[in-house]
Amino acid sequence: MVSLKARLILVFVGMALALMAVFQIHAGSEDERYGFGTEVSDGDLALWDITIHTPSGKGLPEGEGTVSVGKRVFENQCMACHGAEAAGGEEYMFDTMVGGIGSMDENPRVLTPGSMYPYAPILFDYVRRAMPMTSPQSLTADEVYAVSAYIYYLNGLIDEDFKMNAETMPEIEMPNRDAFFVDDRPDVSAERCMENCEPIGSIARQ
C-alpha cells in the first residue's frame, strides 16, 4: 500500500519530468537545430569541392595545358574507348566527340563537346570527375586542361598553340552558346474528349 504522501511525490515528480520534456522539445524547435555533424573548413573539403560554375569558369583550378600535350594524354588515356582523334565509331565504346557544329537544324543532330556544350568549362568538369571511366579523378589539372585543349582543337574551336587554363577556357566561343532556354512546360494543352474525338494517330516514319 503506497501512502498518500508517496503518491503525491510521484505525481509531482511526473509533472516535473513532463514539464522538462515539453521545455526541451520547445527549446529544440526554437533553436531549430539538432547539433549533429562536424564543422568543416574549406581546407578539409579541398579534394571534395570540385564544382565548376561553367558559364563563368568559377571553380576552375590552377594549371595549364596545350594541344600537343593533350594529344599524348588522349592517346594514353582515352583513345582505347574514343578512337583515334576522338572519332569513335562502331568498333569503339563511344561515338565521335568531333564535329556536328551546324547540325542542330538537321536530323540527326550530331552531339559533341564542340557542337553541344554552351560553355567550354563543361568539358573540364566532366573529364576531371568522370574520366577515364576506369580510373576517374586520376588526371592532374594540367592533364585535364591539356586533353580539353586537344578535344576543342579537333573541333576547330581553338588554335594549335592555345594555352588552356582557368582564364582562357571560359573565353572560348562555343557555337551552341545561345541554344538553351529554361523549361517552359506545359507546352501542350490537350482536351479530355470522350466521343467523336480525333484518333490518337502517330508520328511514325512511313
Binding site: D49, T51, I52, T54, L111, Y117, I122, D125
Partner: peptide
C-alpha cells in the same frame, strides 16, 4: 555532397 550556390552550374548533365 550538397553545395549551396547562387546559380545553376550548367554542367554536362544540364546541357549536353
Amino acid at each position: 555532397r550538397i553545395e549551396v550556390v547562387d546559380d545553376a552550374q550548367h554542367i554536362r548533365g544540364e546541357t549536353a
